[in-house]
């Protein structure tokens, strides 16, 4: 039984770590701007595409990785300045629509550049190697993802709790206008938030695409949505919440992918049920259940409406 479940659990934890890194970008932006940054998943995909083209043009891999991360962060910065900053005083829906527009633009841009073909992600030595742990064969990246995620999250939490910019972020997310009156440079804080968020998405893209090996313009949509669901699940605005939510969703999704085999081996069902179809849908079912039971998510703060 354990032998059947373990490989799925393992890849679940790994995918969960990757979702966590994307989800942090969503949750931080939402915490500060109250904006669902629908383009975040596409930035993640663009990071993958940049890596593909950079490696193909002959840049050595050890240089590619930092360059990709810097470029991705830069893209995040530019998107915020171009598409969200002009709408700061507009109704919230306008910014959300702008985010959807950016997502559409990024996808079309990549479609144009790649011609809509699957791009093979470069093989990064060491993290692409196969390893066997507890009888399950997998890639090195699966093993290192959760650890790397935890290190990055701890570093981020330290940054938010113990630095000046972190304090400014907390202040802005608490009260936008008051913190502006207190002399906090809002635009700088928001840009930093986007840079951190997209940087983490860049890290996630290296881990994720090393595992899945191909990138296409729609690759970012599903992981993006799931990471967002993870952020909502954990209580949007809360970083630990996003991480916990992402791991739960990653694990649940992968267990469902293998549910047919697991249940069959356990003798519950006699033939294939095709339950793997629901691996994506389950994420959303989970979301709707949590929203119905606890609308602010696992770690979310309770908000009261003011007239």
């Amino acid at each position: 039984m354990w032998n059947t479940v373990f490989p799925y659990l393992l890849s679940g934890i790994s995918v969960g770590g990757q979702y966590a890194l994307i989800a942090i970008g969503y949750t931080m932006v939402y915490g500060i701007l109250r904006l669902i940054n629908f383009a975040h998943g596409d930035v993640f995909m663009v990071a993958g595409i940049i890596m593909v083209y950079m490696a193909a043009s002959g840049v050595p891999l050890w240089l590619c990785i930092p360059l990709v991360l810097v470029l991705t962060a830069l893209i995040g910065f530019v998107i915020e300045r171009v598409a969200y900053k002009p709408l700061r005083s507009a109704p919230r829906m306008s910014a959300m629509i702008s985010a959807i527009g950016v997502s559409y633009t990024l996808q079309n841009l990549v479609l144009y550049v790649t011609g809509g073909l699957n791009q093979i992600y470069p093989t990064i030595p060491w993290i692409s190697d196969s390893v066997t742990i507890f009888g399950a064969t997998t890639k090195m990246v699966t093993v290192i993802t959760p650890f790397l995620t935890l290190i990055l999250v701890v570093a981020l939490v330290q940054l938010i709790n113990h630095t000046k910019i972190g304090m400014a972020m907390r202040a802005v997310s608490r009260d936008f206008e008051t913190s502006q009156l207190m002399g906090i440079k809002i635009n700088q804080v928001i840009s930093t938030t986007f840079v951190i968020g997209t940087f983490l998405a860049g890290v996630a893209s290296i881990l994720y695409f090393t595992n899945y090996t191909t990138v296409i313009q729609t690759s970012g949509a599903m992981p993006g949505l799931k990471a967002f669901v993870a952020a909502v699940f954990g209580g949007i605005g809360s970083i630990p919440g996003a991480v916990v939510g992402a791991f739960i969703i990653g694990i649940a999704e992968n267990i469902i992918k293998g549910l047919d085999i697991i249940l069959f081996k356990a003798g519950v069902i006699s033939g294939p049920m095709g339950l793997a179809t629901f691996s994506d849908a389950f994420t959303f079912a989970l979301l709707i259940i949590i929203l119905a039971v606890k609308p602010t998510g696992l770690f979310g703060e309770k908000i009261t409406d003011k007239v």
Partner: peptide
Amino acid sequence: SDYLAIATLGFAEI
């Protein structure tokens, strides 16, 4: 608002 948007989107996926 936002929660409703993402929940309806989720239902469409389901």
